[in-house]
């Protein structure tokens, strides 16, 4: 199967800049930091693949390698089956790179002029460039502001123009490096909608997006890879990741005015795994119990049966799903614990 993006044990190490002392005392000593370590990911065509990780995880480095801006130290990276180290020109023809840095535009040129300049650098003839730019401006809802200088654009408009620039060549794959960074929640939401509905839905592009925003990853991506300290910890759909990281099920049971003895008995239930009791809620269902079951085949029924059997009065019961954020933190916490932090 030909993947839009595929990496095989991709590793990137950067040399650490020497201090004056090292230059004098150890001029030939070189120290490196690992930005990516044995990264293996596969992004399918037509999907939104999210690279999720905290700042400094290696997301930008990976995207830059895939966009041929950085050379890997070892391993392989392919974009549409093309090796990034050998096919720079071919890759540039099929990708769009949405640089989230607003300084990547010419501030005293208008939005339209900026797009025209980049169109020329992408070998688009004048007439075709004008038509494409007009279409993209409309697509990104920037037509009315196209002839204003870039410096007068709002952050949201700048980001939209960056996406328009990424789409100039009608690329098959679009790389977006934190496209909603520094946007207000409403603009970010609109931009996510635009990526999902228009760029992937209508234009049928493959989007490879990096983000540290869990909500964004959950809302936008078909599949994600959680990356931390240069290593991909887990890959899959949000559901798959949740199942992998947290196979147990959690339920919240609200009880009506339980007696102390009952709560003690619930703690000792053999059918339940971890039990957490949160007393003093609002009357009448003033006690909330979180029960974690290890067996999904009906053990919650057993728990309920036993509680009722002990005289418990259940007001409500629902399954509690861990958010991606909680799972993400679990991955990071585990990693930090293992690193001795």
């Amino acid at each position: 199967m030909l993947y839009a993006v595929e990496t095989l044990n991709l590793t990137k190490r950067f040399p650490v800049q020497k201090r004056y002392r090292d230059l004098l005392l150890r001029p030939f000593y070189s120290k490196e930091i690992t930005a990516l370590k044995d990264v293996n990911i596969k992004a399918r065509k037509g999907e939104i693949f999210g690279l999720l990780g905290p700042n400094g995880a290696g997301k930008t480095t990976l995207i830059k390698i895939l966009c041929t801006l950085i050379l890997p130290t070892s391993g392989k990276a392919f974009v549409n089956g093309l090796d990034v180290t050998k096919n720079e020109k071919k890759i540039k023809k099929i990708i769009g790179y949405v640089v989230s840095d607003e300084r990547s535009f010419y501030w005293r040129l208008t939005g339209r002029q900026n797009l025209f300049f980049f169109a020329k650098l992408n070998n688009i003839p004048n007439r075709e460039a004008s038509i494409t730019i007009e279409r993209l401006l409309e697509f990104m809802e920037l037509t009315h502001d196209a002839d204003r200088m870039f410096k007068d654009y709002s952050t949201g408009m700048r980001q939209k123009l960056a996406i328009a620039r990424g789409l100039l060549t009608d690329p098959e794959i679009i790389f977006m490096d934190e496209p909603t960074r520094s946007l207000d929640p409403i603009t970010a939401q609109n931009l996510r909608k635009l990526i999902k509905e228009k760029i992937v839905g209508e234009a049928k592009k493959t989007v490879f997006i990096s983000t540290h925003n869990l909500h964004e990853a959950e809302e936008l991506c078909d599949r994600i890879a959680i990356i931390h300290r240069g290593e991909v910890k887990i890959t899959g759909t949000v559901e798959e990741i949740k199942r992998k990281l947290d196979p147990n099920r959690r339920y919240v049971i609200k009880l009506k005015n339980p007696q102390n003895g009952l709560l003690q008995s619930i703690y000792n239930l053999t059918s339940a795994g971890k039990v957490k009791v949160i007393p003093d809620g609002p009357f009448p269902c003033n006690t909330q119990i979180e029960v974690e079951t290890t067996d999904s085949n009906g053990s919650i029924s057993q728990v309920v049966k036993e509680i009722v059997g002990m005289g418990g009065d259940i007001c409500s019961l629902y399954e509690k799903e861990l958010s991606l954020e909680e799972l993400f933190l679990e991955v990071i916490d585990t990693e930090n614990r293992m690193a001795g932090r």
Binding site: C67, T68, K92, Y97, V99, E102, R103, L121, N122, N123
Partner: peptide
């Protein structure tokens, strides 16, 4: 410094031309 170099380098224009 201005941040435009990266955007130029991902275009279909060779570095010497740029």
């Amino acid at each position: 410094m201005f941040g435009t170099l990266e955007a130029l380098l991902v275009t279909q224009t060779g570095i010497p031309t740029i």
